[in-house]
Design a protein around this nucleic acid. Sequence first.
DNA 1: CTGAATTTTCAGAGATTCTTGAAACAAATT
DNA 2: AATTTGTTTCAAGAATCTCTGAAAATTCAG
Lengths: 166, 166
Amino acid sequence: MDVQEGKEKFIESWGKMGGDWGINRAMAQVHALLMIAPEPLTADQIKDELKISTGNTSMNLRALMDWGLVYKQLKSGERKEYYYAEKDIWKVVCQIIINRKKRELEPLLKVLDEVAAVKGDSPDAESFSTTVNDIRKLTHKANQTLDALVKADSNWFTGTFLKMIR
Amino acid sequence: MDVQEGKEKFIESWGKMGGDWGINRAMAQVHALLMIAPEPLTADQIKDELKISTGNTSMNLRALMDWGLVYKQLKSGERKEYYYAEKDIWKVVCQIIINRKKRELEPLLKVLDEVAAVKGDSPDAESFSTTVNDIRKLTHKANQTLDALVKADSNWFTGTFLKMIR
DNA sequence: CTGAATTTTCAGAGATTCTTGAAACAAATT
DNA sequence: AATTTGTTTCAAGAATCTCTGAAAATTCAG
């Protein structure tokens, strides 16, 4: 396999995974391309490489910057803007955790807390309350775990942590 | 808040979360409904409660059974089939991990391993190789961590594990 | 200020995914 | 075997999500 072929496979695969995880394919592909690029790229280069439109490129670059996964670089004497991705994969994971936690986990937790307060003495109320409380407790734990993970550094995860859980 | 209102909020919220995670809303809602039901329900009851069609109900029940999150129960003397959900939330999480790992993480790992073998001496090849290998290593670690988590039991996670990482 | 280069926005087109409901199928009952 | 009850399948339509490309906005040079 040559480099070009490898790049294509990687971009395709990363894009596919994005799709499975509720992130749109183009966004994941732009991210993949920038992660493996040796130098920052212009929107134009990205557009050509991935064969997507200018608009799509622009929108997904904006989204990636909002997620804190891609940065803009201005080169002096040049009009064009260059983009580059965070390459420290541990930081990438942390950014994604931070974002999804805020967007999804925290709103869910809020609802679970509200809903766990429900009282009643029917079998329905009983079963509801038990299940919701179990989910609520585990979700809170998961939330704490993710907080701890994000605070930790990469070596801790790949070293200490992994040894502990085995 | 009364029980009915609580149920509705929970089902809506769980369905919403499913959507964010690449699972369709109806499937997540059927799951939510069964998790909080005190007794197994028939397809008909689910259909009425969630106001979805028979076909939709049937297909999503099948999918939930394939994921190992819902079981079928036959009551003697009754024609109708009853469905109930796994209520141990830790088991639910494990089932989801097992399924998604197989469907998504493992294929990605395969591609990463293939692609990490790429050789070349251009800056492109260099950058590609470094990044892909970093991702590959972390993905393998994540895979191992998930294996360990699934083998562990609930108490270990909520007790020991959580203490360790703090 | 004018004009060229570049980026952003967004309405409509296109693609994908989800839902419906009717028909086929299955299983038990008469 | 015909009927009744219940379940599954699937084609067509609906809903949702994504992409395009042209127009508007922005930026900078002269």
